[in-house]
Design a protein around this nucleic acid. Sequence first.
DNA 1: TGAAATGTTGGGGCG
DNA 2: ACGCCCCAACATTTC
Length: 475
Amino acid sequence: MDKQKSIVWFRKDLRVSDNPALAGAIKAGEVIPIYIFDEYGADYCKMGSHARWWLAKSLEALSESLEGGLHVFQGHSLEIIENIIKKTGATSVFWNRCYEPWIIKRDTKIKKTLLDQGINVQSFNAYLLWEPHEIVKTDGTAYKVFTPFFKNGCLKAQAPREIISKPKNINFCKMKLGISIVDLQLIDKKVDQRLSKYWQPGEKEAMKRLKYFIKHDLSDYKEGRNFPAKDVTSKLSPYLHFGEISPNQMWYLVQDLGYDYASRENIQTFLTELGWREFAYNVLFFNYDMPRKNLNKKFDKITWKYDKKLLQFWTQGQTGYPIIDAAMRELYHTGFMHNRMRMVVASFLVKNLMIHWHAGEDWFWDLLVDADLASNSFNWQWVAGCGYDATPYFRIFNPILQAKKFDSRAEYIRQWVPELAKLSVKYIFEPYNAPDHILTEAGIVLGKTYPKPMIDLAISSKCALELFKQSFKHS
DNA sequence: TGAAATGTTGGGGCG
DNA sequence: ACGCCCCAACATTTC
């Protein structure tokens, strides 16, 4: 008797453990694991260069975990799945849901089409702790403020799904299908040279990192996470984005710790960060245009500067403000930026340079290995002030103060802006205020080896305040 | 998850 | 000893 064959369609769940779709297919019989690189309909959210690198590496790791059994394709998802069904006689398709609006739209159609053809289709939640549509206020409308969303919404709802353990024996369908990962041409050589120094994608590495973080860094998380040179953040965001680890695995592993490893505050702070991720997806679910439209329409009237040169100073890490340049260069070289630094550089772009948050969002989208549609757009709106529960328009970071407060020994600056490394902490935060002989001794020629400040902080933030106030007055 | 401007307080120097 | 001033330290307000 022929065994039932099931397709497992991997997407943003590139792991074997705690994978409900895979578990479902294994139970049903023979498994055909597939990945489809499909960006039809992605429009402005096609993957960035650094994310593509990560995806390729992650697919390689997944394929290895599946004994080389991952079948890779490129093209229209529905057409490809229908073809595989024809070739293999598969009777079921399992997948874990994605929550990007364009994917929801696509998958809804695919599900309906396949069901109409008599195929058994099952989708699961393996990406979020709580389904967005289930966390709403008692009057049925969506939350707009984080604290009640998390405390009254999430924490009082049903507990997140329990972790599914790693499957022992998988019965693979042995047919040869699809193309190789290399054929997807996801990796740019120069990107590979940069990122492979810093990252090892994959499910195994993700769990290793989580355990390392819990053991070494969680006990200092609440305070330490503000200091970019300390490196006590988990750096799990790219793994989480590609589903190499599930939020459930993180949630339960951290929540079930005794307070030996870390105090209640540290644990709670970390879990709350997972809560912000949930909130970003929840807000996106109820606002499909969050990536492109101000949630607060009052901001529609603001006239932004569309100055390519100004933007370029920012993207290239040549603003003349060391902490900003350090952060922007960290992003370019590693595909990652420390969280506090993300806030600082974003505030500078939007509130000092008066450049639209879309420009920052796009740059981050291309370079972050954790580039995530919900988190990225949600957080840019948060900084710009037009998001839900956002920072108020008048809250403007001063990059010099931020540097002195959170990188007081200038370790982070020296790492990423080596041309300033010889300056002492007295001058390194504001090299343009250093006496000439100090600069000469440090081998610095302002305007040549390191740029002069591209704008005046006090003037630009005053102008921004005035502009915001004026714009809001008329609406 | 801000920073600057402004207001208040209190200890010490000094005539 | 007393009042006056200065100013750091802290608190409050404002954007």
